[in-house]
Design a protein around this nucleic acid. Structure first.
Lengths: 197, 197
DNA sequence: CCTACCGATCGGTAGG
DNA sequence: CCTACCGATCGGTAGG
């Protein structure tokens, strides 16, 4: 019977929030998973909201770091795009519970905290906009493409993987990112031939 | 002050379930939106679970019908793929609350009902598998592509649109499906040139 | 981290 | 559709 740290509580909370949702997880549920009573959690944390805040912040920091790294890169746009795709998938796979909580439960944060997360995600999206835009300027990507729309579609595709990708499944993250690379690569290319559609 | 029908209750429930989640919506919340008390809802419905069951079933029926229509089609694979994409987007846009509840809250159904929904979605996915597989056999799509993975990626992309697509936004569903068509079209083509990645 | 609680809110019912 | 409830569960606190 080992003692639980605050980090243990947050980690387990992220799993339960991902699996059963923030509102579907009671403090007694969470305590039960850690082998203690719900009321005992309050020696580690101040409130249930605080748990969600911490999980979302941790996840947000991951995406923030990726955005910073890619923004600092001087590689050609398609390579930076692959860095984003690969890095984004890595974040989702490394801590799927944290990522799912970020993606699905951020809306349940208190308003001020939610705004911070939304702004951070906007900034993250801008990294995609920049890469796509640079790719157009350099002739890699179609100029006809709506930059915001393309970014939204790519992010949708990436975030959706949390719904079906399993780390112990038949595919590894390399398979998935390679397939996405091909899918996006050809689809984003300036020279393309659309057939049949 | 008009009376509410059972259909009104379900429709409003789908909106609240989409916005605040199943567990984040109380019967008193729902009653409040309809101008009555939470307890008064029970003259229209039997339980809160029943509301979720009904919303999910309605949405599931939409996807079921699309799958049946496309399965009955004898068009070339790329055209059927576009029917799926366009039809799927139409369902999401026509009733975004219902669709979001289907996508996000199905997991909170009672086990037996959840299994039904999962099976139905599996069947829906198989429609994508068939189209992709046919497209490979007919030489439209790369044979190297993993059919299940491609279907998952396409569905991720489509379902993710519920997070950002707004019916009154600058883009209409035609813009979005056209962009997706180009993205998928070239990316799925058997003749392609990957550059830079 | 537990014991022993608290007021608030939950889904739901009986009866009109 | 309301009045008047019900037992269960919620997030959280005081004190050890």
């Amino acid at each position: 019977m080992k003692r639980n740290s605050r980090a243990d509580v947050i980690e387990t909370a992220s799993r339960l929030f991902a699996e059963k949702g923030f509102h579907g997880t009671s403090m007694r549920d969470l305590g039960g998973e850690l082998g203690l009573l719900g009321s005992s959690l309050y020696s580690h944390i101040g409130s249930k909201n605080e748990l969600l805040v911490d999980v979302v912040r941790q996840s947000a920091a991951m995406f923030q770091k990726l955005a910073d790294d890619v923004s600092a890169s001087v590689e050609p746009a398609p390579k930076r795009m692959f860095q984003l795709v690969r890095g984004h998938l890595n974040i989702l796979v490394n801590d799927p519970y944290q990522a799912q909580t970020f993606l699905n439960e951020t809306r349940f944060l208190p308003p001020n905290e939610r705004e911070i997360a939304v702004k951070l995600f906007d900034h993250y999206q801008k990294t995609f906009h920049k890469v796509i835009s640079d790719g157009q300027d350099a002739g890699f990507y179609r100029n006809s493409m709506d930059v915001h729309l393309a970014a939204n579609l790519i992010l949708s595709l990436l975030n959706g993987t949390t719904r079906w990708f399993r780390d112990n499944g038949p595919l590894d993250i390399g398979d998935v990112s390679a397939e996405i690379a091909v899918l996006l690569g050809s689809g984003l290319s300036s020279s393309k031939s659309i057939k049949g559609l």
